[in-house]
Design a protein around this nucleic acid. Structure first.
Lengths: 236, 236
DNA sequence: GTTGGATGTTCACAGCGTTAACATCCAACA
DNA sequence: TGTTGGATGTTAACGCTGTGAACATCCAAC
């Protein structure tokens, strides 16, 4: 009955079966506990119960392992944002603004709930090919499901988390224009503006000068910032 | 003529004379080149031409050295912002708005010109006692020169760079209200809002999803974001 | 069944942060 | 003026890290 095969995820034998994902899981655990600096290749291997050099059969080196953690973090952030946006009922008056606020709060909520993973998701890495290029020049970003077909796989291709959240933001901003709340003249570049506000808020409250704020002060500051952002978008 | 004393900054002998500052300078150099991860105690000691353990006479350990680099980075950022704000002539109509924009552009300009130092200035460190507490509860932050006397020393106490820039931001926001451009109702919490936007913009353009933008796209995005911020502040 | 490529192991090396024990030198006191 | 003690710097050593080289194991396909 023992599964001595390596093709299935049996944990017993010489060949692990799914070492790459096991290492990523372990590394994500490390990141959750200690941020990007805690993503230590040897520690991940130790957790999985495998020799350090085994990791090199699946990753070029530690930076690539960290990159996988980044992708996982962005994925989870996107999921959190999606859930927050979905929680806003369509029936809500000013549903678009509310969705915008919910998205921002989801973003910051993730940063506060998963600081290590959040820091890892946005930590600097040398050759961090995180494109997301034209998008602002008018072209649509290469989001999966954008072209014909290609949909359904739940795990997704990974790294698409960044695109998922970006696409979400684009839709909400378009919604603001469609609802007549935002002048079309203000629409171009609004993605950067919105993302900057929410991301800056998250990082400054997490690690920056606003970390000492009490929970109440923090929540109030978040509310004010997001409403000021919407006020800027909806200004004439 | 040789200065074999250690009290002056003679570089010749057994006792360095100003090793602490020399190590900080070296560490800042490392940070400029490679960000916070490049702030390696042994490398700094090597640059100064001293044994690694000598550093422990002046720092509790590597984290404390990194902290000194953070302070230096915040100091330089504040100087850059001050210069940018000063460059706006008082005679300018809407001088307050212009100063606001200049400050933001100075901030982002520093991030782009000194990415390693900027990342170091805002990198996460465990016991990073960077208070800046009540400030939002109405109390004034403990800025030097706030109380009676205490002014003139150019080098400052260090770490006050954070307070310097914060104080600058407060003054400009107050100016917006005084000029009647910003509703007093929007004033509370505006520091967090403004700083978040500018900081988020900087980090996302530096390391985040907007890093691939061309210089033109980047400048345009910065302009849009800052103007949206001002629009939010000056909205009714 | 044999075998080759994928996968995992042991060994080794250099660089890092850090501690312990020892060396040097200036400053202050006699 | 001579001695000495504390501040400052040095060498040696430990365990940790990332990583390469050589070797071992095992599944899959011939």
């Amino acid at each position: 009955m023992e599964d001595s095969s390596g093709t299935t995820a049996g944990k017993g034998r010489y060949h692990h079966g799914d070492l790459r994902n096991a290492l990523i899981d372990a590394a994500v655990g490390l990141a959750r506990a200690g941020g990007p600096d805690a993503v230590v290749l040897r520690a991940a291997a130790r957790r999985v119960g495998v020799s350090p050099t085994a990791a090199y059969r699946h990753f070029a080196g530690q930076p690539e392992l960290l990159f996988a953690v980044k992708e996982a973090g962005q994925q989870r952030l996107a999921e959190r944002m999606e859930a927050a946006v979905r929680a806003v009922p369509d029936t809500h008056p000013r549903a678009v603004e509310e969705r915008m606020l919910a998205m921002g709060r989801g973003y910051i909520g993730f940063a506060l709930d998963e600081p290590g993973l959040f820091r890892s998701a946005f930590c600097h890495t040398a050759d961090d090919v995180t494109r997301l290029p034209a998008a602002l020049s008018g072209e649509a970003p290469p989001v999966p499901g954008d072209g014909p077909a290609a949909e359904g796989l739940p795990g997704a291709d990974a790294d698409e988390g960044q695109f998922r959240s970006f696409r979400m933001l684009v839709e909400i901003l378009d919604g603001l224009v469609d609802a007549g709340r935002m002048s079309p003249a203000r629409r171009p570049g609004a993605e950067v503006t919105a993302w900057s506000m929410v991301h800056g808020l998250s990082t400054l409250v997490l690690d920056g000068p606003f970390a000492p704020l009490t929970e109440e002060q923090r929540d109030a500051a978040v509310d004010i910032a997001l409403r000021t952002l919407v006020a800027g978008f909806t200004a004439p």
